Simulated scan of single mutants.
Amino acid sequence: MIRKIKQMWKAVHMELQEHKSSFLVYVILRLAVLLMMVLQLFNGNYENVFLCLLTLVLLMVPSFIQVNLKIELPTTLEIIILLFIFAAEILGEIQAYYIRFPGWDTLLHTVNGFLAAAIGFSLVDLLNRNEKVKFQLSPAFTAIVAFCFSMTIGVIWEFFECGMDLFLGFDMQKDTVLHSITSVMLDPTKGNHPVTIDGIKDVAVNGESLGLGGYLDIGLLDTMKDLFVNFIGAVVFSVIGFFYVKSRGKGKMARRFIPRRKKREADFLRIIQEEEKEEE
């Protein structure tokens, strides 16, 4: 067991160093996270220290996946994934970019929709190219599967955010300040007729003003916005993937985002295992 862990660890490190550009991004981000972790430790923000540790682990996930599943992530895709992790955990959570920049969450959810569609597409594409598996989908159905995979990931993430807010008292579903609301609950006749209140400038709770300048929506609009931009990202990649399959893999842009099977000479775990067998 220990031997296998050592082999895996060595293979992951070889995988990290395979492409100079992605390795350089990994090193820079790792150093930035370590620096942030030290600062948070000195400030006594232990929750943020945990987030830094989690980020360090997540930064190694792409290489771990490549070694174990024997797939090759294009350098462009790998760099985007690394930047996405850093942007979401360090900048978004610790540096509060989600609050400072209203479009930060929207940007990340759009990218997530795009990346998830790329992953879903690659799963089908790898099966389509596998001679041992009798599995073939047309370009249109491949694009549809990629789109559905991306939207499913988006929905599951929103379930996760809702659960964290309900049961642990977080605010992952960021609230929105509204100046008008429409609800059948306001109908005095109880006749299921929507009633609108316009020009809301202040709301009081238990007799105290919230000071927000409007009505506080509790995450619904944020959730729907996240799903909508996830939808946009999924559609964009699904269209790209459709033409990629249609042209039988000639699309240069799509190739930058679609994982492929590892070549034998790039299977570092196999190489390490064979070298150790020869030494024995």
Score class of each variant (00 low, 15 high):
5 I>Q: 08
12 V>F: 04
13 H>P: 03
13 H>Y: 07
17 Q>F: 03
19 H>N: 09
24 L>P: 02
24 L>E: 07
28 I>A: 14
28 I>D: 03
29 L>W: 00
32 A>G: 04
33 V>M: 05
34 L>H: 05
36 M>D: 04
37 M>D: 04
39 L>E: 10
40 Q>H: 15
41 L>F: 15
42 F>M: 15
53 L>R: 05
53 L>D: 13
54 L>M: 10
58 L>Q: 07
60 M>V: 13
65 I>L: 14
66 Q>L: 02
67 V>I: 03
69 L>Q: 01
71 I>A: 02
83 L>M: 09
85 I>F: 08
86 F>P: 03
87 A>L: 10
90 I>N: 02
93 E>A: 15
94 I>G: 01
95 Q>N: 12
95 Q>L: 15
96 A>H: 14
100 R>C: 06
101 F>H: 13
101 F>W: 14
103 G>E: 05
104 W>A: 02
109 H>T: 00
113 G>K: 00
114 F>K: 03
116 A>I: 00
123 L>R: 00
127 L>Y: 11
128 N>V: 13
128 N>A: 08
129 R>L: 13
130 N>D: 12
133 V>A: 15
135 F>G: 09
137 L>A: 08
143 A>M: 08
144 I>T: 14
144 I>M: 08
150 S>G: 12
154 G>V: 01
154 G>F: 00
154 G>Q: 01
155 V>N: 01
155 V>I: 13
157 W>P: 00
158 E>G: 01
165 D>A: 07
165 D>G: 05
165 D>I: 10
166 L>P: 02
168 L>A: 11
170 F>L: 12
170 F>S: 11
170 F>H: 08
172 M>P: 03
172 M>I: 14
176 T>M: 11
179 H>Y: 05
180 S>F: 13
187 D>I: 05
189 T>R: 10
193 H>E: 11
194 P>Y: 11
195 V>Y: 11
201 K>I: 14
208 E>Y: 11
208 E>K: 13
210 L>W: 08
219 G>I: 04
224 M>G: 04
226 D>Y: 04
227 L>I: 09
228 F>V: 03
228 F>M: 10
228 F>P: 02
230 N>L: 04
231 F>Q: 14
232 I>S: 09
233 G>D: 04
236 V>R: 05
239 V>A: 05
239 V>E: 01
240 I>G: 00
242 F>M: 03
246 K>G: 05
255 R>W: 01
257 F>T: 01
257 F>Q: 00
258 I>K: 01
260 R>Q: 10
267 D>R: 09
270 R>T: 12
276 E>D: 10
279 E>L: 11
